[in-house]
Amino acid sequence: MFTEAQLYAPVVTRADGDVVVELGADHPGVGDPAYRARRNAIAALALDWRPGEPVPAAPYTAEEHEVWRVVSAELERKHERLACAAAREGRARLALPVDHIPQLTDVTAALAPLTGFTYLPAAGLVPLREFYGSLADRCFWSTQYIRHHSVPLYTPEPDVVHEVIGHAITLAEPSYAALYVAAGRAARRVESAEALELVSKVFWFSLEFGVVREGGEPRAYGAGLLSSYGEIEEFAHADLRPLDVARMGTQTYDITHYQPVLFAAESWQQVHDVVGGFFDTVDDDLAERLLREASTAAR
């Protein structure tokens, strides 16, 4: 499994059938029994769900809805200054609630008429080939839990804020949605683990942590930046490198820190030409050639 696996707290089903989310010792909610019980219950709902069934509703508390309200308001202000035009357009089109956490069925109801995407429940980590491949069918696997109330502007793992305020607002904009679908088709086209990892890393440095210049200023277009209260203020100070899919596909990253190296497009059209063009054409042979060229250039 690639680096992305470290983003999620492990979800295990014990011999007695109990579902347990194993939070790390430094997780803000590790010492809160009520929060941990809800995390376990929400994970169990996703594990019990089967395709074709209604997506289960997560049992949020008033305290958790307040977390959403605080984070949503703060991110909306930051998006006005620091998000790219397409992301702001997607947010306006989707019109998410600001006073409560939307259920995934509500997200789908708003999103499907715009770009055809639907949300599916995930307990935690979804295998990469399944996660990316589902994008080709305009399906997005999403966690349902929300971060701990003690630190509403921080989470050590992707929660419903990331999945919805980060990804759903971009999936609501057609040119964004086309990139996700192309990424899904690429994941299904390639066969080797190395080629799939290349696809996943290009996705990471574009649709998760991509930057685009607009009006001469760097703007965030990746969902990881759009959903991070802290990193969206800091990304402009990263080492912003030109788009290069071979280098994007081999660049290492540490998920526990703000990304020191990001890749900036000169325009939204360049994102589609370079990143979208890669997703549209990559196969195992191209992936092998790009990885070989990147390895040679690094020597």
Score class of each variant (00 low, 15 high):
Val67Glu: 06
Pro28Met: 11
Pro10Ala: 07
Gly29Ala: 09
Glu191Gly: 15
Trp141Leu: 09
Val261Gly: 05
Ala92Ser: 13
Leu135Gly: 02
Asp16Gln: 06
Ala57Leu: 15
Ser150Asn: 11
Val67Arg: 07
Ile169Asp: 07
Tyr253Met: 07
Ser227Gly: 09
Val190Lys: 00
Pro158Arg: 05
Arg69Tyr: 11
Asp48Gln: 15
Thr3Asn: 13
Trp204Gly: 01
Glu22Gln: 14
Tyr258His: 15
Ala238Ile: 08
Pro156Trp: 02
Ala183Phe: 03
Val161Gln: 02
Phe235Glu: 09
Arg69Asp: 12
Ser192Tyr: 00
Val199Thr: 01
Tyr154Pro: 00
Tyr253Phe: 11
Ala110Leu: 15
Phe117Ser: 05
Val274Gly: 02
Pro10Met: 07
Ala183Trp: 00
Ala236Ser: 12
Ala5Phe: 13
Gly90Met: 00
Glu163Thr: 02
Val21Leu: 01
Ala122Thr: 04
Thr252Gly: 15
Arg299Asn: 12
Ala25Phe: 13
Val12Asn: 13
Val55Lys: 02
Leu262Phe: 05
Glu266Ser: 12
Glu217Leu: 14
Glu233Arg: 14
Glu53Pro: 10
Pro127His: 11
Ala112Tyr: 11
Leu262Ile: 03
Arg88Asp: 08
His79Gln: 09
Glu157Leu: 10
Val11Asp: 03
Glu74Asn: 15
Arg219Gln: 08
Pro260Thr: 07
Leu240Lys: 02
Ala177Ser: 02
Arg39Glu: 10
Gly124His: 09
Tyr60Cys: 03
Ala294Val: 05
Asp239Thr: 12
Ala85Gln: 14
Leu225Val: 04
Leu198His: 04
Ser142Tyr: 04
Val245Arg: 00
Glu66Lys: 13
Glu208Asp: 09
Asp239Phe: 09
Ala238Asn: 08
Phe131Pro: 05
Ser206Tyr: 01
Pro33Ser: 00
His79Glu: 03
Pro242Ala: 07
His257Asn: 14
Glu53Thr: 09
Thr61Leu: 05
Leu286Thr: 01
Arg69Trp: 09
Arg38Ser: 09
Ala5Arg: 14
Val67Gly: 06
Glu74Pro: 11
Tyr8Asp: 01
Val70Ala: 12
Ala86Glu: 11
Arg93Tyr: 10
Val30Leu: 09
Leu243Trp: 06
Val98Ser: 15
Glu63His: 12
Val107His: 05
Tyr132Pro: 00
Ala136Glu: 05
Leu47Pro: 06
Pro28Ser: 04
Ala5Gln: 14
His257Ala: 15
Leu226Asp: 04
Ser267Ala: 07
Thr3Glu: 15
Ala109Phe: 10
Ala123Pro: 04
Val164Ala: 01
Gly249Ala: 08
Ile169Phe: 06
Val261Phe: 06
Val151Gln: 15
Ala41Arg: 10
Tyr60Gln: 11
Tyr253Thr: 09
Glu22Cys: 12
Lys78His: 13
Ala193Thr: 13
Gly52Ile: 10
Thr143Gly: 08
Asp244His: 10
Glu66Pro: 12
Trp141Arg: 09
Glu231Tyr: 04
